[in-house]
Write a protein that binds this DNA or RNA. Structure first.
Ligand code: MN
Ligand code: MN
Ligand code: ZN
Ligand code: ZN
Lengths: 155, 155
DNA sequence: TTATTATTTAGAATCATTCTTAATTAGTAA
DNA sequence: TTACTAATTAAGAATGATTCTAAATAATAA
């Protein structure tokens, strides 16, 4: 069976880039932290464990490359750093985020939810949508009492 | 009649801040550029024309204050700077943006459009929404041919 | 092998933003 | 008015994230 790394390797090759050891180590870290929203510095520190010789600039360059190939999405939650998020395989659009103003947690919404809104925007604003960023700021289920339950399905 | 500045002055006083000459000059620039999405540096250069003695740090401090009071919204379109956007008076939520990948234009959508989506998110994810950021990336009406018309109503 | 190109490292440089300090201003009470 | 106090500011230093540079290394092609 073809692994996720294999497929990423193919995507790199298709764009005539190589999967160097440094790039592979970086991708592995991203795969191991799919749920998280790591900054370049975060990635760097984690990669150092499995590939101690890597430089910070290489991590930045790799993340930039992966962003270009739409393997990861770069996002900014308003604290001064960019964060990198592995894109769901085959997803046309970036997933959405819930940022808790209380505890800082960042949860994900994988459902589209925007189909209708996008249809309106394309038509009324005559705008060809290629991608989007949608983030809700508020209070997460952990931080307020009403019915304090974890939502059953996140994906 | 009460002007927009008067109302902002009241908002500052209500939070026990003063409308100093520097703050007033900064707000005037924002009012004069409602359509734009100015960075702190942009604001600084414009304010210098009407209040040459102002310092960049003061502009940053003022913008931070106005953000805190929800008079402006701070937003990041992925080029390394924060941009500041005057909030529509009385608006509960921030408006949406259309960023053109071709020409870089940033257009605004003042309509809500998210009512249904927010209802779903509040219920299914048990998340109390306080605000949001929604940006579409794509090709604007100026940059593609099909029916190349400016959308009639933007507000 | 030799030439060519891509990639990396380490550290310098850049750029946006924040912090520090001393001076200025505004508000208040005597 | 004068003195006291707190808020605000200017200027520049400091910080921190990101990008750039130059020299070394690795992969690829001839
Ligand atoms: Mn995510
Ligand atoms: Mn706007
Ligand atoms: Zn929370
Ligand atoms: Zn355009």
């Amino acid at each position: 069976m073809e692994t996720r790394i294999d497929r990423i390797k193919k995507q790199l090759h298709a764009a005539s880039y190589k999967l160097t050891p440094q790039r592979e180590a970086t991708v592995r870290i991203l795969l191991d932290h799919e749920e998280d929203h790591l900054s370049a510095e975060d990635v760097y520190l984690l990669v150092k464990d499995i590939a101690p010789e890597i430089g910070l600039a290489t991590v930045y360059r790799t993340l930039e490359l992966l962003t270009e190939l739409k393997i990861v999405d770069k996002i900014n939650f308003g604290d001064g750093v960019s964060r990198y998020d592995l894109r769901q395989e085959g997803a046309a659009h970036f997933h959405h985020h819930l940022v808790c103003l209380e505890c800082g947690a960042v949860d994900e919404i994988q459902e589209d939810l925007l189909e209708d809104v996008e249809a309106v925007v394309e038509k009324r604003w005559n705008f060809q949508i290629k991608d989007h960023r949608l983030t809700f700021h508020g209070i997460c289920w952990r931080c307020h009492d009403s019915g304090a339950d974890k939502p059953e399905k996140d994906a």
